[in-house]
Amino acid sequence: MEKIARSYGYIDPNFPNPGGEKDTPVIIYGYTPSIALAAFAAAWFFLHFVYHTAQTIKNRSWWWMTFSAGLIFEVIGYIARSLSAKKNPYHLIYFILNYFFIVVAPVLLVAGIYTILSALIPRVGSRYSFLPPKVILAFFITSDVISTIVQVAGACLIGVKESRRQDPTTANNILLGGLAYQVFVMTIFVILAASFQFRARHVIRANELGLFCFAFSISTLIVYLRTIFRLAETAQGLMGELQTNEVYFACLEFAPIALVVLLFAIWYPGRCVGAAVRVNDKP
């Protein structure tokens, strides 16, 4: 399918614009989304939502419910993307719902990852961590909420500007600022998590947590690299190479998050770390 490029966006020659009230003059995605990818992603995350929620109830590890919430956000986001792909890729509401839920979902998933470190620290030993668990949870979750609000605001403004054929540069810069802050915060978390696990490596092995901590580390790095991709995509500007090629979205947005939820399904945190998150060292 040949793309028709415009200075103001992308128009699919095989998908005429319905010209509805909520339809934008161009496809803001930069391409017509794939229904196969969107439908598969919705099904994948729904199955993992069912599994993770069932495990949370079984193990009474209620602190992991943020992960289930993130998974249901992924499902909603990809359902909206499916509607864009199958029904109308020009529809502004479908795009906003797709972007909002797919951007916010990893924040909830990462909140679970932050909680894992906070649960590991008292179990393994607080002396190995540079920060106490309460500070880690409060700082990183608050920072993620702030960065997400900024990102969503920027994305919504981009949609509005595109629909009015106005310059979206300022809106894109707002989105870029939110992503840059998120990358900065995650960089700090990666350093903290890596230093803690290195200093506590002998205790981690003694507690038979080696495989779980490996899965935790890989998942953290995957989410971190996914956030860097989002930053690079936004830094290129609208209709840049990363934004207008769905292969990059599939490989650097969907695939990393899909792998993370699979890793935590195999090494379920509520079973490996414990049902409760304590803030003091074990006696």
Rank of each mutant, 00 (worst) to 15 (best):
Glu2Asn: 13
Glu2Thr: 15
Glu2Ser: 12
Lys3His: 14
Arg6His: 12
Arg6Cys: 07
Tyr8Arg: 07
Tyr8Asp: 15
Gly9Asp: 02
Gly9Lys: 01
Tyr10Ser: 06
Tyr10Ile: 11
Pro13His: 12
Asn17Pro: 06
Glu21Ala: 12
Lys22His: 14
Asp23Trp: 01
Asp23Ala: 03
Asp23Pro: 00
Val26Pro: 07
Ile27Leu: 02
Tyr29Val: 04
Tyr29Met: 00
Tyr31Pro: 01
Ile35Arg: 05
Leu37Trp: 04
Phe40Tyr: 03
Ala42Gly: 06
Phe45Lys: 03
Phe46Cys: 12
His48Tyr: 15
Phe49Leu: 14
Tyr51Arg: 13
His52Trp: 05
Thr53Arg: 09
Gln55Val: 10
Thr56Cys: 11
Arg60Asp: 13
Arg60Val: 00
Trp62Asn: 09
Ser68Trp: 02
Ala69Lys: 04
Gly70Met: 02
Glu74Ser: 11
Glu74His: 03
Val75Trp: 06
Val75Thr: 07
Ala80Thr: 04
Leu83Tyr: 13
Lys86Ser: 15
Lys87Ala: 14
Tyr90Val: 01
Leu92Ala: 15
Leu92Glu: 09
Leu97Ala: 10
Tyr99Thr: 07
Phe100Gly: 12
Phe101Asp: 09
Val103Glu: 11
Val104Phe: 13
Leu109Ala: 05
Gly112Arg: 07
Ile113Leu: 05
Ile113Phe: 00
Thr115Met: 09
Thr115Pro: 04
Thr115His: 04
Leu120Thr: 10
Arg123Ser: 11
Arg123Gln: 12
Ser126Cys: 10
Phe130Asp: 15
Pro132Ala: 12
Pro132Tyr: 04
Pro132Lys: 10
Leu137Val: 15
Thr142Cys: 06
Val145Tyr: 05
Thr148Asn: 04
Gly154Gln: 01
Ile158Ala: 02
Gly159Ser: 05
Gly159Gln: 01
Lys161Tyr: 01
Ser163Gln: 02
Thr170Ala: 07
Leu175Asn: 07
Leu179Met: 05
Ala180Gln: 02
Ala180Asn: 05
Gln182Ile: 06
Gln182Ser: 02
Phe184Arg: 08
Phe184Leu: 09
Met186Cys: 10
Thr187Cys: 02
Thr187His: 11
Thr187Gln: 11
Phe189Gln: 00
Ile191Gln: 06
Ile191Gly: 08
Leu192Phe: 07
Ala193Arg: 06
Arg199Leu: 11
Leu209Ser: 07
Leu209Trp: 01
Phe212Thr: 15
Ser217Trp: 07
Thr220Cys: 02
Thr220Glu: 03
Ile222Thr: 10
Val223Trp: 03
Val223Gly: 14
Leu225Met: 15
Thr227Ile: 02
Glu233Phe: 08
Thr234Phe: 07
Ala235Leu: 14
Leu238Trp: 00
Met239Phe: 00
Glu241Asp: 11
Glu241Cys: 07
Glu241Val: 14
Leu242Lys: 08
Thr244Gln: 06
Thr244Cys: 04
Val247Arg: 12
Ala250Ile: 06
Leu252Gln: 05
Glu253Asp: 00
Phe254Tyr: 13
Pro256Gln: 12
Ala258Gly: 10
Leu259Thr: 04
Val260Ser: 08
Leu263Val: 09
Phe264Ser: 03
Ala265Cys: 14
Ile266Val: 11
Tyr268His: 08
Val273Met: 07
Val273Gly: 00
Ala275Leu: 01
Val279Asp: 05
Pro283Gln: 03
